[in-house]
Design a protein around this nucleic acid. Sequence first.
DNA 1: TTGTATGCGTTATCAG
DNA 2: CTGATAACGCATACAA
Lengths: 325, 325
Amino acid sequence: MANIKDVAKLANVSVTTVSRVLNNRGYISQETKKSVQDAMNRLQYQPNEVARSLFRRQSYMIGLIIPAVSHPFFAKLTHFIEFYAHLQGYKIVLCNSLMESNKEKDYIEMLKRHQVDGIIMGSHTLEVEDYKEVRLPVVSFDRQIAPKIPYISSDNFTGGIIAAEHLIEKGCKKIAHISGSLALNVLANKRNDGFINTCRKKGLEYCVYETDINVLENDNYEDVINRLFREIPDVDGIFASSDIIAAKVMKKCSELGKRVPDEIKIVGYDDTDIAKYMVPGITTITQPIEAMAKYAVDYVVKQLDEELVPNETVLPVSLTARGTT
Amino acid sequence: MANIKDVAKLANVSVTTVSRVLNNRGYISQETKKSVQDAMNRLQYQPNEVARSLFRRQSYMIGLIIPAVSHPFFAKLTHFIEFYAHLQGYKIVLCNSLMESNKEKDYIEMLKRHQVDGIIMGSHTLEVEDYKEVRLPVVSFDRQIAPKIPYISSDNFTGGIIAAEHLIEKGCKKIAHISGSLALNVLANKRNDGFINTCRKKGLEYCVYETDINVLENDNYEDVINRLFREIPDVDGIFASSDIIAAKVMKKCSELGKRVPDEIKIVGYDDTDIAKYMVPGITTITQPIEAMAKYAVDYVVKQLDEELVPNETVLPVSLTARGTT
DNA sequence: TTGTATGCGTTATCAG
DNA sequence: CTGATAACGCATACAA
């Protein structure tokens, strides 16, 4: 690979001059500019971004730490994060934490050593103090880590309300929420608050079931769902905290011979593609994933530009009605 | 951020000595080693990997170019690629090409400028000559780009055969294949060859429908599916070239009142999660995605170690029978 | 066992 | 308008 020196030699100029045409900086005569460009082309010169990064102490890389890209929600989020990062000239270094806190910690260190310009944090197994030493711009997803770390989430509380209200409107009398682990310090748990609040207000019988911390172990979902149907055989409405759980519930209903939506109604969460694909389509709470991704990238970049960013950014959710209700 | 000089100063040694304890190289007394480590801890020193990369001309980064992580197949593939890369100390820079050839080209250049050690190529809109200038280790997914670029795929031809045979065994008399764009130069198209071969051999009526090049535009899928059912109303078996297409077919069947699998049978491809979630579960051709990911990473690393790698690596597929047949 | 000097490829400063 | 040089943070060859 040719470097700036080779170009300089071939064009009979100094490296400084080559650097100038490379960066369009300073005065330069048209002739030399052209001859330098010719040399670049002949050598197929590509500037070494590692050297540039070292010098300017900026890598144009953003680290993204999530539980797992294989999960549809994070796949979609990652997709848009990469998209908007690319628009602004940033690259994404992908890290799947698998919800293991030591992996999460290692990834943060690794990213720092690699001099990423910022980190988008969507996996949350660490404590607040673990973030003390991270002196990089961080944007958190779906969790309020510390006052100084801006977070982005959708309006989980309202999401829980909408879901519960929808089930109630549709005539459900005995509803359950299948929640993610409430032990986890994430804002998604506010869905449960919204759900419970609404049930209480309307004087409805309700119940909450928690899944494991692990986002990946789907087996655990099935255990929870089995338990739910065993303990509340006459449940007629389920609010599932992800479309995947909703799909699993649908499958169970089919096994049990419960007709959806006639005998039991289901509301999912996220509005990932699976909600559309299922037959019938899953009524779900739509998270504005693309907007969330865009904000995450913007906030990293803005912090780098030393612009002020809001600490809390809560984007609206909405109900997307389909066949399960 | 403290650098090696700061550590040296605090420990009252030279940077060389610090470098030595950092890399466990050369002779060093226990005392100085300890005092250097103390200094490192006190300063929370983290080596700057950008500087290291510049020096050793190796970044431990691998570029991954795919059409879109949001697609379940690529999400799963990406997940495992990152997993195995991390095991070997490599980082993944994620690039979604959206199947736009200029984006694909730009990403390749960008990755080279950033001095990635290798590229895993899962998006294929470019011509062979576009790869002439890529002087990096490349591993291609599902396409034979050039003799010198090793590729990994699963046995698409056999996949097509298995799918067709399964539909025929199950009693289908008039079957169709919904294929990806056959204009694309990818090995997935061999599924179609296997399908057609089998149908001919068994003397069965068959038909092939192609979708667009674009993996993302699902609207197009629906058009194709609509056309299929309009033109062959009595089709009783469909081989869909992805689980997503299969799911869309199921939805259409539900709209048309066609009972699956009684009136029409469906075989998908990939065995992504959606095949499990759908009700009934989708009978599908299982690709060994994890193994494919592992091989891709291994081959990049082996090329870097100047080990020989096979040009063609075709992994076996298998049928996973579920409810749609 | 430890230190000095040099270079990795680039950019900024400053002098011409 | 152009060029020599130092510096970014680190690791190696070579001295001591």
